[in-house]
């Protein structure tokens, strides 16, 4: 209980390091989620609505990538960005950008796979109706997105949830450097290992609060107030 009280004091103390950690976490998570949405959702929509030979194979690859261990992705990005790696000249290792790259690789397949599954459920019926009405291709795609607005917001949230809770890959490529690449998850891990439980709990409370606020905001986007009427 004492630890929890101390954690609450830390949360509301506006500690400079805590705010810095929150800032890096939000920058990394929101950027990687946005980039993954921009790549994964259109790819998933295209995959979900199309029927072609080899689709099942592509879906299998996507599902395999979905289950890829974060540390493996972290290792691959580390090797590519390390001094002697093919992208070493970019000098991105141990930076927030490197963490964003790793997270994009981690969550883009998840978003693409989930989007393809979601779209695949109603796309055949919807598109047959829309094509039968001879609606232009752009209108058909727009309708497909509007009709799947709720599940697509959930897909984005799933990606966000995965990004904000990820620790293995960002730890590897970011290096958990104080006031530079330290994020909530890596900080919690570090403070726990040091026995600094108050600080770790404070960070955990903040992490949960951010996740709650984002989910709460997203529920408006999903239009949930209508769905339960």
């Amino acid at each position: 209980m004492e630890a929890f009280k101390e954690a609450m004091r830390l949360v509301f103390s506006l500690d400079r390091e805590i705010w810095q950690i929150i800032g890096v976490t939000l920058r990394m998570t929101l950027t990687s989620t946005a980039v993954s949405c921009l790549i994964g959702i259109p790819f998933g929509v295209l995959l979900g609505k199309s029927v072609f030979r080899g689709k099942a194979f592509i879906m299998r690859i996507l599902y395999t990538l979905t289950g890829m261990p974060p540390v493996v992705i972290g290792l691959i990005v580390f090797l590519f960005l390390s001094h002697s790696g093919p992208l070493g000249s970019l000098k991105l290792l141990f930076s927030v950008d490197a963490m964003i790259i790793a997270q994009c690789l981690l969550i883009t397949p998840i978003m693409a796979g989930l989007t393809a599954s979601v779209i695949g459920i109603n796309a055949p019926k919807l598109l047959e109706t829309a094509k039968g009405m001879r609606l232009p291709g752009r209108t058909q795609t727009k309708l497909l997105l509007i009709e799947n607005k709720v599940p697509l917001v959930s897909v984005a949230l799933t990606g966000f949830g995965r990004a904000i809770s990820e620790v293995g890959a960002v730890n590897l490529v970011g290096g958990n450097i104080q006031l530079k690449t330290r994020v909530l998850t890596t900080a919690i891990m570090l403070e726990t290992s040091k026995g600094n439980f108050e600080f770790a709990i404070a960070l955990g409370v903040i992490l949960l609060s951010i996740a709650f606020i984002i989910n709460f905001a997203a529920s408006f986007l999903r239009g949930e107030k209508y769905d339960y009427s």
Binding site: K125, E128, T129, A130, K131, R134, L135, E147
Partner: peptide
Amino acid sequence: SKPYYLPQHSYGFSMSVYKNLQTA
């Protein structure tokens, strides 16, 4: 020459009935 087709299980778009008609 292009035909218009109404499938057996046609889809009611989730917008209002009024807007459904507007789409067409």
